[in-house]
Design a protein around this nucleic acid. Structure first.
Length: 426
DNA sequence: TTTTGAGTTGTTCGA
DNA sequence: GTCGAACAACTCAAA
């Protein structure tokens, strides 16, 4: 059983398939140098924690080996290698290489309720607009969760086959593992799900599910999250967020190049600024706009950023600083614990206006107004920008001389962004 | 084939 | 202070 983005025992059809087809299985995770290279310290630490959690639930029998996938897999001389299928460009190419090497790779299930490529329009092409996709996705439906295996007869690893990485970090990152995922989800279901439609946007509130990192590493399957939702506005809004993840996976599956290229090509011809001092200020959370800076510092210190503020900082980079979305996406890729290729690239493209459901040209977020709306008392700002702790509520979003001077004037840059868009229209 | 209505997350301006 | 209209043009989905 080759674990990748499915670090769990419950609701794992590939694991059940492996068990059903063998007297004894080798539970294996392969450390991939390519993925390690692009991940920051926090995501690596999270992965290390997640692997330890999985090992514990396997009674200490998880094999963890660094190296080339084909070589590692062949060293076990396996009759079958069971996996949950992957769809983004890197994972799909890697699995094809393994398959082509003659390894008997058996795919069961995927990290999605409905696998990419399955939801089709009546004319058998894929959707490019979210709302119709959502309807088609609902109509397609999905199976219910499956139980965890009762018994796993796993090979006892040799010492050399347990190369658990010792990555650590000084920051407080989310708790990893299947148990932590379900604990948090139960908390969310009990305390925040019923007000999700209203509260999920509030940056100062713990009103989101925080399932992103758990989903990224497959510590929980979306089927489990979808089970038991009702048709209330709150529950449907949550279901739609799960569907966004599946929509973007589907879009990327059909357009693999959009991982780092423009979905709407004409945006490649727009005038952009090269990333310089302003980009550096954005990365470090010192743009002079408190809501933007708080969000960037939340990312830097926790490896996670609230969904609302992801849009605000993305809009600021692309529309106020006129820097191409890929620079922001790469920065997110390095720092986010929950980094997901499809959601990251297409979330960024959506905000930049060059993605699916392109945002109207006039939709330029106002970083101050967004703060007033979604962090009315400035609690979020004060949490991540200690130097603003004593600034009163009515000044917190525009502190004037008590904070760094804004690196650009939003009013001016908004007009500039609209002018640059004008140049590529038609 | 043609037509029609709609499209995650907003802001500004003027009445 | 509140509220509604205006803000491009285009692509897409479905009738």
């Amino acid at each position: 059983m080759w674990f990748r983005r499915d670090l769990r025992l419950a609701d794992n059809p590939a694991l059940l398939s492996a068990i059903a087809n063998a007297d004894e299985i080798v539970p294996l995770f392969i450390l991939d140098p390519n993925l390690i290279k692009q991940a920051g310290n926090k995501r690596l630490t999270y992965l290390a924690n997640s692997l330890r959690a999985l090992n514990e639930s396997l009674g200490g029998r998880l094999h963890v080996i660094a190296g080339d996938q084909v070589e590692v897999l062949k060293s076990f001389n396996p009759l079958e290698v069971h996996i949950s299928k992957e769809y983004e460009p890197y994972g799909a190419a890697r699995d094809k290489r393994v398959l082509d090497s003659g390894i008997n790779l058996i795919e069961t299930g995927s990290p999605y309720a409905v696998a990419p490529g399955r939801v089709r329009k009546p004319d058998d092409t894929n959707y490019r607009v979210y709302t119709p996709f959502y309807k088609g996705w609902l109509a397609h439906g999905w199976r219910g969760p499956v139980a965890a295996p009762k018994e796993i007869n796993a090979v006892q690893p040799r010492k050399a086959d347990q190369q658990f990485p010792d990555w650590t970090c000084d920051f407080d990152i989310p708790k990893a593992g299947e148990v932590a995922a379900l604990e948090r989800f139960n908390w969310f279901r009990k305390n925040a799900l019923d007000s999700y439609d209203e509260m999920r946007n509030m940056a100062d509130t713990d009103g989101t599910s925080r399932m992103s990192a758990h989903l990224k590493f497959g510590e929980v399957h979306p089927r489990t999250l979808l089970q038991g939702l009702n048709n209330s506005k709150a529950h449907d809004t949550f279901r739609k967020e799960i569907a966004w993840r599946e929509f973007y996976a589907d879009v990327l599956f059909h357009n693999p190049h959009t991982i780092d290229e423009y979905y709407v090509e004409k945006f490649a011809n727009m005038r952009y600024e090269e990333p310089g001092e302003n980009f550096k200020a954005w990365c470090e959370g010192r743009t002079g706009y408190p809501f933007v800076d708080a969000a960037m510092r939340q990312l830097i210190t926790t490896g996670w950023m609230h969904n609302r503020t992801r849009m605000v900082v993305a809009s600021f980079l692309v529309k106020d600083l006129h820097i191409e979305w890929q620079y922001g996406a790469n920065f997110f890729m390095e720092l986010l614990v929950d980094y997901d290729p499809a959601s990251n690239s297409h979330g960024w493209q959506w905000t930049a206006g060059c993605g699916t459901d392109a945002s109207p040209y006039y939709r330029v977020f106002n970083p101050i107004e967004q703060g007033r709306k979604f962090d009315p008392n400035g609690d979020y700002i004060r949490k991540y920008i200690p130097e603003l702790r004593d600034v009163p509520n009515e000044l917190i979003h525009e502190p004037g001389l008590s904070y760094i001077a804004p690196i650009v004037d939003h009013k001016v840059e908004r007009v500039e962004a609209l002018a640059r868009l004008e140049e590529i229209k038609g």
